[in-house]
């Protein structure tokens, strides 16, 4: 089938069907991977929350403007989505979450979302050292591996040090930022470096 026709069909699908189609055969896999973002359907992403939980678990909560929600949980060697557990075998689950799945979530994002949040669960005070380490690893991966800026109006971050705030704020597209919420854990929040960023300059509302 001509490329233009296939592009047309993909543009008329919903984003979940495009992800399924990508699994069908090598040709579709390569074709969809090579498509320009503008040819892909809009996932209508409303909010994305990354939460580290006890037991070295990472959860993605993805909300859409149509009211639907996807929750994906990652832990050592596995990913759980809608009760389906995928064995990640020898892959690092953090690589899968950030470098693969998050990349695809953002690939289907056309407009700005309302919220992007990185945090720990409400029982964060009980997180073990290995959970704290995972949180740091998440921050590090996000700041090092994101090949596109996240389009969101509101950014909310929990962090253990000022440098983590600085790392994360820079993965957000300053053109869309309206509100920044910083949640420092056990340290004094300083604005010296952060206030120099474009994201800070563009924001209208600040929360600490």
């Amino acid at each position: 089938m001509p490329v233009v026709v296939m592009e047309n069909i993909i543009g008329l699908l919903d984003f979940r069907s495009v992800l399924t189609l990508r699994q069908v055969c090598r040709d579709f896999w390569n074709f969809i991977d090579d498509l320009k973002d503008s040819k892909l359907p809009d996932s209508k992403l409303k909010g994305l929350t990354l939460t580290v939980r006890k037991g070295r678990k990472l959860e993605f909560k993805i909300e859409y403007f149509d009211g639907s929600i996807d929750i994906i949980e990652y832990m050592e060697n596995s990913r759980t989505y809608k009760e389906k557990i995928t064995n990640l075998e020898n892959s690092n689950f953090l690589d899968v979450a950030i470098q693969n799945d998050l990349k695809w979530i953002l690939k289907f994002q056309r407009g700005s979302s309302d919220l992007f949040e990185i945090g720990m669960d409400l029982q964060a005070v009980y997180l073990r050292p290995e959970d704290e380490q995972l949180y740091q690893d998440v921050i590090e991966q996000l700041s090092n591996c994101m090949n596109r800026k996240i389009k969101t109006k509101k950014l909310q971050i929990w962090a253990n040090k000022n440098s983590e705030f600085l790392s994360i704020i820079q993965i957000v597209d300053p053109k869309f930022v309206v509100e920044l919420n910083f949640r420092p854990r056990f340290f004094a929040f300083e604005t010296d470096e952060i206030s120099k960023t474009e994201q800070w300059k563009m924001a209208k509302v600040f929360g600490f």
Partner: peptide
């Protein structure tokens, strides 16, 4: 009309919605 399942690239873990 794709006849056979295929083996995805070994470096890939597909996506969550597969």
């Amino acid at each position: 009309g794709i006849p056979e399942p295929w083996e995805q690239p070994s470096t890939s873990t597909a996506t969550w919605d597969d």
